Computed example of a mutant assay.
Amino acid sequence: MESFDSPAQALASFERFYGDTVCPGSAPMTATEREAAEARASLGTPTAEPEPHTPEPEIVPAYTADPGDHDAILDEFLDANSDWEKWRTWSDDTTNAIHESQTLRIERVHEAHPREIAWTVAAYETPVSDRLWHLTATGSTPAPVLQTLLDLLANGDGWDIPLGSPAAKKNVTTATKPLTEAGWTHTVDGRWLRWTHPSNDTGVQFDAFAAQRPDSLLPTWTMWAGPSIDQPTWALRASPSAPALMIADLAEVLALHTSNHLRTAPRRAVLRTTTPPPGIPAAPAQSSGRSL
Rank of each mutant, 00 (worst) to 15 (best):
V128D: 15
A154W: 09
V22W: 11
E51R: 12
T126P: 07
D130V: 03
L245M: 14
D160I: 04
P114W: 09
M223A: 14
D83W: 01
E2Q: 11
S101G: 07
P28A: 02
Q231M: 06
W184F: 10
M29Y: 02
G203D: 06
L153M: 14
G156Y: 02
H70E: 13
E252R: 15
G190I: 12
L179I: 07
G164K: 09
P67W: 10
S287Q: 02
D79I: 06
T138P: 03
R40M: 14
W119T: 01
T94Y: 05
T64S: 13
R16W: 07
L78T: 11
T274P: 01
G139C: 07
E116W: 00
D215F: 10
S140V: 01
T180E: 13
P144S: 07
F209P: 00
H113C: 02
T126C: 04
A238M: 13
D249I: 00
E33L: 11
I280E: 03
G190V: 11
E181L: 13
T174V: 15
R237T: 15
R105A: 15
P198H: 03
E181F: 00
P266A: 08
V253D: 13
L179S: 11
D92H: 01
R40F: 12
T64W: 12
A255L: 04
D66W: 05
